[in-house]
Write a protein that binds this DNA or RNA. Sequence first.
DNA 1: CTACGAGTTAAAGTGCACTTCAAGTCAAGC
DNA 2: GCTTGACTTGAAGTGCACTTTAACTCGTAG
Lengths: 136, 136
Amino acid sequence: MRELSIGEVAREAGVPASTLRYYEKAGLLPAPPRRSGQRCYSEAVFGRINLIRLALEAGFTIGETRVFLSGFSEQTPPAARWRTLAARKLEEVNALMDRAQRMKSLLETSFRCRCLRLEDCEKFLRTAKRRQGASC
Amino acid sequence: MRELSIGEVAREAGVPASTLRYYEKAGLLPAPPRRSGQRCYSEAVFGRINLIRLALEAGFTIGETRVFLSGFSEQTPPAARWRTLAARKLEEVNALMDRAQRMKSLLETSFRCRCLRLEDCEKFLRTAKRRQGASC
DNA sequence: CTACGAGTTAAAGTGCACTTCAAGTCAAGC
DNA sequence: GCTTGACTTGAAGTGCACTTTAACTCGTAG
Protein backbone atom coordinates (compact mmCIF):
# COMPACT_ATOMS: atom_id res chain seq x y z
CA MET A 1 0.00 0.00 0.00
CA ARG A 2 1.20 3.47 -0.92
CA GLU A 3 2.95 5.40 1.82
CA LEU A 4 2.38 9.13 2.02
CA SER A 5 4.02 12.07 3.73
CA ILE A 6 1.89 14.63 5.49
CA GLY A 7 2.46 17.01 2.60
CA GLU A 8 1.13 14.53 0.06
CA VAL A 9 -1.91 13.74 2.18
CA ALA A 10 -2.53 17.44 2.64
CA ARG A 11 -2.34 18.12 -1.08
CA GLU A 12 -4.53 15.21 -2.10
CA ALA A 13 -7.12 15.72 0.62
CA GLY A 14 -7.18 19.48 0.24
CA VAL A 15 -6.54 19.98 3.95
CA PRO A 16 -3.55 21.94 5.33
CA ALA A 17 -0.85 19.84 6.98
CA SER A 18 -1.25 21.93 10.14
CA THR A 19 -4.87 20.83 10.28
CA LEU A 20 -3.89 17.18 10.03
CA ARG A 21 -1.47 17.61 12.94
CA TYR A 22 -4.20 19.43 14.83
CA TYR A 23 -6.67 16.56 14.22
CA GLU A 24 -4.05 14.10 15.43
CA LYS A 25 -3.46 15.99 18.63
CA ALA A 26 -7.21 16.30 19.10
CA GLY A 27 -7.61 12.53 18.80
CA LEU A 28 -9.52 12.53 15.50
CA LEU A 29 -6.73 11.01 13.43
CA PRO A 30 -4.69 8.06 14.77
CA ALA A 31 -0.98 8.86 15.04
CA PRO A 32 0.63 7.14 12.04
CA PRO A 33 3.99 5.33 12.26
CA ARG A 34 7.06 7.56 11.84
CA ARG A 35 9.89 7.13 9.40
CA SER A 36 12.87 8.99 10.89
CA GLY A 37 10.52 11.19 12.82
CA GLN A 38 8.12 11.95 9.98
CA ARG A 39 4.53 10.82 9.71
CA CYS A 40 4.06 7.98 7.26
CA TYR A 41 0.40 7.64 6.25
CA SER A 42 -1.38 4.86 4.40
CA GLU A 43 -4.11 5.62 1.90
CA ALA A 44 -6.71 4.58 4.48
CA VAL A 45 -6.27 8.00 6.02
CA PHE A 46 -8.36 9.62 3.28
CA GLY A 47 -11.51 7.80 4.34
CA ARG A 48 -10.94 8.92 7.89
CA ILE A 49 -10.39 12.52 6.80
CA ASN A 50 -13.58 12.46 4.75
CA LEU A 51 -15.53 11.22 7.76
CA ILE A 52 -14.05 13.98 9.91
CA ARG A 53 -14.80 16.72 7.38
CA LEU A 54 -18.32 15.47 6.91
CA ALA A 55 -18.97 15.41 10.64
CA LEU A 56 -17.47 18.86 11.21
CA GLU A 57 -19.35 20.36 8.28
CA ALA A 58 -22.57 18.91 9.63
CA GLY A 59 -22.01 20.83 12.84
CA PHE A 60 -20.27 18.30 15.10
CA THR A 61 -17.67 19.80 17.44
CA ILE A 62 -14.21 18.27 17.62
CA GLY A 63 -15.12 16.46 20.82
CA GLU A 64 -18.34 15.06 19.38
CA THR A 65 -16.58 13.98 16.22
CA ARG A 66 -14.06 12.08 18.34
CA VAL A 67 -16.87 10.12 20.00
CA PHE A 68 -18.61 9.67 16.66
CA LEU A 69 -15.46 8.17 15.15
CA SER A 70 -14.75 6.00 18.17
CA GLY A 71 -18.20 4.49 17.69
CA PHE A 72 -17.08 3.17 14.34
CA SER A 73 -13.75 1.77 15.38
CA GLU A 74 -14.81 -0.16 18.45
CA GLN A 75 -15.01 -3.92 18.00
CA THR A 76 -17.98 -4.18 20.32
CA PRO A 77 -21.49 -3.27 19.24
CA PRO A 78 -22.01 0.51 19.17
CA ALA A 79 -21.35 1.92 22.59
CA ALA A 80 -24.37 3.34 24.36
CA ARG A 81 -22.59 6.67 24.56
CA TRP A 82 -22.16 6.74 20.82
CA ARG A 83 -25.78 5.81 20.15
CA THR A 84 -26.90 8.56 22.49
CA LEU A 85 -24.70 11.06 20.73
CA ALA A 86 -25.85 9.88 17.33
CA ALA A 87 -29.51 10.17 18.28
CA ARG A 88 -29.03 13.64 19.69
CA LYS A 89 -27.02 14.71 16.68
CA LEU A 90 -29.62 13.33 14.30
CA GLU A 91 -32.09 15.72 15.89
CA GLU A 92 -29.64 18.57 15.59
CA VAL A 93 -29.01 17.76 11.95
CA ASN A 94 -32.77 17.75 11.38
CA ALA A 95 -33.07 21.15 13.06
CA LEU A 96 -30.20 22.42 10.94
CA MET A 97 -31.91 21.26 7.77
CA ASP A 98 -35.11 22.94 8.91
CA ARG A 99 -33.36 26.26 9.41
CA ALA A 100 -31.49 25.93 6.15
CA GLN A 101 -34.75 25.19 4.35
CA ARG A 102 -36.37 28.27 5.86
CA MET A 103 -33.41 30.44 4.93
CA LYS A 104 -33.51 29.00 1.44
CA SER A 105 -37.20 29.82 1.11
CA LEU A 106 -36.55 33.30 2.39
CA LEU A 107 -33.73 33.87 -0.08
CA GLU A 108 -35.70 32.50 -2.99
CA THR A 109 -38.77 34.52 -2.11
CA SER A 110 -36.77 37.69 -1.76
CA PHE A 111 -35.53 37.17 -5.30
CA ARG A 112 -39.06 36.89 -6.62
CA CYS A 113 -40.79 39.63 -4.65
CA ARG A 114 -40.00 43.28 -4.15
CA CYS A 115 -40.72 44.06 -0.52
CA LEU A 116 -40.13 47.74 -0.05
CA ARG A 117 -40.48 47.58 3.69
CA LEU A 118 -38.83 45.20 6.10
CA GLU A 119 -42.11 44.70 7.94
CA ASP A 120 -43.66 42.95 4.97
CA CYS A 121 -40.89 40.43 4.91
CA GLU A 122 -41.06 39.99 8.61
CA LYS A 123 -44.65 38.91 8.10
CA PHE A 124 -43.37 36.44 5.57
CA LEU A 125 -40.79 35.34 8.05
CA ARG A 126 -43.34 34.75 10.79
CA THR A 127 -45.31 32.58 8.41
CA ALA A 128 -42.19 30.85 7.17
CA LYS A 129 -41.11 30.13 10.71
CA ARG A 130 -43.72 27.46 11.32
CA ARG A 131 -44.85 26.34 7.88
CA GLN A 132 -43.37 27.32 4.60
CA GLY A 133 -45.13 28.39 1.45
CA ALA A 134 -46.33 31.89 2.31
CA SER A 135 -46.37 34.54 -0.39
CA CYS A 136 -44.71 37.84 0.34
CA MET B 1 -47.51 50.34 20.38
CA ARG B 2 -46.01 48.62 23.40
CA GLU B 3 -42.65 49.95 24.55
CA LEU B 4 -40.14 47.48 25.87
CA SER B 5 -36.93 47.61 27.88
CA ILE B 6 -33.96 45.57 26.77
CA GLY B 7 -34.65 43.10 29.57
CA GLU B 8 -38.20 42.50 28.37
CA VAL B 9 -37.10 42.05 24.78
CA ALA B 10 -34.38 39.68 25.93
CA ARG B 11 -36.81 37.59 27.96
CA GLU B 12 -39.48 37.43 25.26
CA ALA B 13 -37.07 36.79 22.40
CA GLY B 14 -34.97 34.33 24.37
CA VAL B 15 -31.78 36.25 23.56
CA PRO B 16 -29.43 37.67 26.22
CA ALA B 17 -29.49 41.45 26.60
CA SER B 18 -25.75 41.49 26.02
CA THR B 19 -26.35 39.90 22.62
CA LEU B 20 -28.89 42.58 21.70
CA ARG B 21 -26.35 45.29 22.57
CA TYR B 22 -23.75 43.39 20.56
CA TYR B 23 -26.08 43.21 17.54
CA GLU B 24 -26.71 46.92 17.83
CA LYS B 25 -23.02 47.76 17.87
CA ALA B 26 -22.50 45.39 14.95
CA GLY B 27 -25.15 47.22 12.92
CA LEU B 28 -27.69 44.39 12.85
CA LEU B 29 -30.24 46.08 15.11
CA PRO B 30 -31.07 49.78 14.66
CA ALA B 31 -30.32 51.83 17.79
CA PRO B 32 -33.73 52.40 19.42
CA PRO B 33 -34.69 55.74 21.03
CA ARG B 34 -33.56 56.19 24.64
CA ARG B 35 -35.70 57.07 27.62
CA SER B 36 -33.32 58.59 30.20
CA GLY B 37 -30.45 56.73 28.66
CA GLN B 38 -32.16 53.36 28.38
CA ARG B 39 -33.12 51.60 25.17
CA CYS B 40 -36.83 51.80 24.44
CA TYR B 41 -37.85 49.14 21.88
CA SER B 42 -41.07 48.77 19.93
CA GLU B 43 -42.52 45.35 19.24
CA ALA B 44 -41.21 45.58 15.68
CA VAL B 45 -37.84 44.54 17.06
CA PHE B 46 -38.95 40.91 17.36
CA GLY B 47 -39.31 40.50 13.62
CA ARG B 48 -35.86 41.91 13.14
CA ILE B 49 -34.40 39.62 15.79
CA ASN B 50 -36.04 36.61 14.15
CA LEU B 51 -34.52 37.54 10.81
CA ILE B 52 -31.11 37.91 12.41
CA ARG B 53 -31.30 34.56 14.21
CA LEU B 54 -32.50 32.82 11.08
CA ALA B 55 -29.67 34.24 9.01
CA LEU B 56 -27.02 33.44 11.62
CA GLU B 57 -28.33 29.92 12.12
CA ALA B 58 -28.25 29.36 8.38
CA GLY B 59 -24.53 30.15 8.42
CA PHE B 60 -24.42 33.87 7.59
CA THR B 61 -21.65 35.77 9.34
CA ILE B 62 -22.46 38.99 11.19
CA GLY B 63 -21.18 41.04 8.26
CA GLU B 64 -23.19 39.11 5.69
CA THR B 65 -26.29 39.36 7.83
CA ARG B 66 -25.85 43.13 7.96
CA VAL B 67 -25.86 43.29 4.16
CA PHE B 68 -28.74 40.84 3.97
CA LEU B 69 -30.82 43.01 6.32
CA SER B 70 -29.89 46.23 4.57
CA GLY B 71 -31.27 44.73 1.37
CA PHE B 72 -34.68 44.62 3.01
CA SER B 73 -34.72 48.08 4.48
CA GLU B 74 -33.63 50.07 1.43
CA GLN B 75 -36.38 51.96 -0.32
CA THR B 76 -34.81 51.37 -3.71
CA PRO B 77 -35.08 48.04 -5.55
CA PRO B 78 -32.73 45.41 -4.09
CA ALA B 79 -29.17 46.60 -4.28
CA ALA B 80 -26.96 44.69 -6.65
CA ARG B 81 -24.63 43.90 -3.80
CA TRP B 82 -27.42 42.34 -1.87
CA ARG B 83 -28.63 40.25 -4.80
CA THR B 84 -25.08 39.03 -5.32
CA LEU B 85 -24.79 38.08 -1.68
CA ALA B 86 -28.18 36.40 -1.71
CA ALA B 87 -27.30 34.36 -4.78
CA ARG B 88 -23.99 33.28 -3.31
CA LYS B 89 -25.60 32.46 -0.01
CA LEU B 90 -28.32 30.46 -1.69
CA GLU B 91 -25.60 28.24 -3.08
CA GLU B 92 -23.97 27.96 0.32
CA VAL B 93 -27.28 27.07 1.93
CA ASN B 94 -27.77 24.39 -0.73
CA ALA B 95 -24.31 23.01 0.01
CA LEU B 96 -25.09 23.06 3.72
CA MET B 97 -28.29 21.09 3.15
CA ASP B 98 -26.37 18.61 1.04
CA ARG B 99 -23.83 18.01 3.78
CA ALA B 100 -26.54 17.82 6.41
CA GLN B 101 -28.41 15.28 4.30
CA ARG B 102 -25.30 13.14 3.93
CA MET B 103 -24.60 13.32 7.64
CA LYS B 104 -28.21 12.40 8.31
CA SER B 105 -27.98 9.39 6.00
CA LEU B 106 -24.76 8.36 7.67
CA LEU B 107 -26.27 8.63 11.15
CA GLU B 108 -29.42 6.77 10.16
CA THR B 109 -27.49 4.04 8.40
CA SER B 110 -25.17 3.58 11.33
CA PHE B 111 -28.20 2.96 13.50
CA ARG B 112 -29.46 0.25 11.20
CA CYS B 113 -26.23 -1.53 10.36
CA ARG B 114 -23.50 -2.97 12.52
CA CYS B 115 -20.21 -2.09 10.90
CA LEU B 116 -17.51 -3.74 12.92
CA ARG B 117 -14.75 -2.02 11.05
CA LEU B 118 -14.40 1.62 10.19
CA GLU B 119 -13.36 0.76 6.66
CA ASP B 120 -16.77 -0.62 5.81
CA CYS B 121 -18.38 2.63 6.75
CA GLU B 122 -15.81 4.57 4.89
CA LYS B 123 -16.92 2.68 1.82
CA PHE B 124 -20.44 3.74 2.64
CA LEU B 125 -19.19 7.26 3.05
CA ARG B 126 -17.52 7.28 -0.33
CA THR B 127 -20.77 6.19 -1.89
CA ALA B 128 -22.77 8.62 0.18
CA LYS B 129 -20.48 11.46 -0.75
CA ARG B 130 -21.71 11.70 -4.34
CA ARG B 131 -25.07 9.97 -4.34
CA GLN B 132 -26.97 8.81 -1.35
CA GLY B 133 -28.72 5.55 -0.76
CA ALA B 134 -25.85 3.07 -0.40
CA SER B 135 -26.25 0.14 1.93
CA CYS B 136 -23.56 -0.53 4.47
C1' DC C 1 -31.86 59.70 52.12
C1' DT C 2 -30.60 55.31 51.08
C1' DA C 3 -30.86 51.02 48.96
C1' DC C 4 -32.02 48.29 45.10
C1' DG C 5 -32.62 46.43 40.57
C1' DA C 6 -32.18 47.29 35.93
C1' DG C 7 -30.01 49.70 32.83
C1' DT C 8 -25.45 52.14 30.59
C1' DT C 9 -20.41 51.93 28.53
C1' DA C 10 -15.73 50.38 27.04
C1' DA C 11 -12.74 46.83 27.53
C1' DA C 12 -11.22 42.41 28.54
C1' DG C 13 -12.21 37.45 28.46
C1' DT C 14 -14.06 32.89 26.39
C1' DG C 15 -14.42 28.76 23.40
C1' DC C 16 -13.78 26.85 19.16
C1' DA C 17 -11.19 25.48 15.06
C1' DC C 18 -7.56 26.36 13.26
C1' DT C 19 -3.03 28.97 11.75
C1' DT C 20 1.38 30.84 12.36
C1' DC C 21 5.78 31.11 14.46
C1' DA C 22 10.38 29.86 16.23
C1' DA C 23 13.71 26.69 16.60
C1' DG C 24 15.21 22.49 15.48
C1' DT C 25 15.82 17.59 12.68
C1' DC C 26 16.52 14.92 8.62
C1' DA C 27 17.70 13.04 3.71
C1' DA C 28 19.21 14.28 -0.72
C1' DG C 29 21.84 17.06 -4.10
C1' DC C 30 25.85 19.87 -5.25
C1' DG D 1 30.54 19.88 4.18
C1' DC D 2 26.90 22.83 3.17
C1' DT D 3 22.51 24.07 1.50
C1' DT D 4 17.77 23.21 0.53
C1' DG D 5 13.15 21.79 1.33
C1' DA D 6 10.02 19.20 3.82
C1' DC D 7 9.30 17.83 7.96
C1' DT D 8 9.17 18.05 13.56
C1' DT D 9 7.54 20.30 18.18
C1' DG D 10 5.26 23.43 21.64
C1' DA D 11 3.49 27.81 22.11
C1' DA D 12 1.44 31.82 20.70
C1' DG D 13 -1.78 34.13 17.53
C1' DT D 14 -6.29 34.67 14.77
C1' DG D 15 -11.24 35.44 13.71
C1' DC D 16 -15.74 34.91 14.99
C1' DA D 17 -19.72 35.39 18.02
C1' DC D 18 -20.53 36.31 21.88
C1' DT D 19 -20.00 36.91 27.38
C1' DT D 20 -18.24 38.89 31.42
C1' DT D 21 -16.45 42.55 34.15
C1' DA D 22 -15.94 47.08 36.24
C1' DA D 23 -17.50 51.34 37.10
C1' DC D 24 -21.19 54.09 36.45
C1' DT D 25 -26.38 56.25 36.07
C1' DC D 26 -31.41 55.94 36.78
C1' DG D 27 -36.11 55.66 38.74
C1' DT D 28 -38.65 53.72 42.46
C1' DA D 29 -39.72 51.73 47.18
C1' DG D 30 -39.11 52.14 51.97
